[in-house]
Design a binder for these strands. Structure first.
Lengths: 143, 143
DNA sequence: ACGGGTTTGTTGGTATACAAGCAGATGTTG
DNA sequence: CAACATCTGCTTGTATACCAACAAACCCGT
């Protein structure tokens, strides 16, 4: 057995918000992967935004999904490789790349939405309905 | 302006727990980086565990910090490059690599602990003291 | 003692995530 | 209109994060 320090010296990592935020997120990603086949949470988020807004520039899509321009580039690229989105230059503003859902992308999102709901339920299963509602409110204030 | 779908069709990504867990974690990592210079949250977590237990095998350290063996390998490697930990083979069990804090590592952790506390405070600044306490309890039930 | 299962650490591959630096396009202001 | 600032997308580099496959070392039951 490894020796432990006394309580006075011990730092309670397991009770640190930052550590637990990271673990909660890790756990949710794992649960999401189990329920939603073929899409990561970030890819799902991108599809959700494109479903909401028919067409978005790549950077704007990134901002709406909390990804910087380097990250969203890769996500769009992988969604494109799966045939779920298309992208083309904007004729009015030549800096922009307009990204859109394909039909397959819209269908995939609609199917994934129900699965994502199940992932959410499993993520929250340790909390009562009342606690879950409260947690979501507090989490919303944090971000 | 991009066209939006009607409310009936709209998926409220911004209210999804998974999405907000990811954003909350991103935000915390950014705040942590601002307050704790030279250490990432995961590197800090590893130092915290090594401060708690004097000596740990690499894999066990990974388990205690919620990192798989591939991830913890890189973290230990970078901490070693900074001179904050040392690692050596275990003579009793030749599979193991024992990882320990160096003196510089212990000092760095003690300094970083106060800074991490400030990062925590800033992360939670949107919540009242009572809400923050409650949030931590609920988050603890989730992980 | 030995053959089978487990554990540990490593490697390679994929996917976020962000900083910094870049070039081209656009906007703004004198 | 010209100078300047801003924005967009791209690239490189670093750091998690996890999966799958692997070999060496260990453990355990027979």
């Amino acid at each position: 057995m490894a020796k432990e320090r006394t309580d006075a010296q011990r730092y309670q990592l397991s009770q640190q918000v930052g550590f637990n935020l990271r673990r909660a997120n890790q756990r949710h990603v794992a649960i999401f992967a189990k329920h939603v086949e073929g899409l990561t949470p970030t890819q799902f988020a991108a599809l959700a935004r494109l479903y909401e807004f028919e067409s978005l520039s790549q950077n704007k899509l990134g901002r709406l999904t909390a990804m910087d321009s380097a990250t969203i580039k890769g996500v769009v690229e992988r969604l494109r490789a799966k045939g779920l989105v298309s992208s083309r230059p904007d004729l009015n503003d030549q800096r922009l790349r307009l990204v859109e859902l394909t039909e397959a992308g819209a269908a995939t999102f609609e199917r994934a939405e129900a699965q994502a709901q199940m992932a959410r339920a499993e993520t929250m299963e340790g909390l009562s309905a009342e606690e879950a509602r409260l947690f979501e409110v507090l989490l919303g204030k944090l971000v």
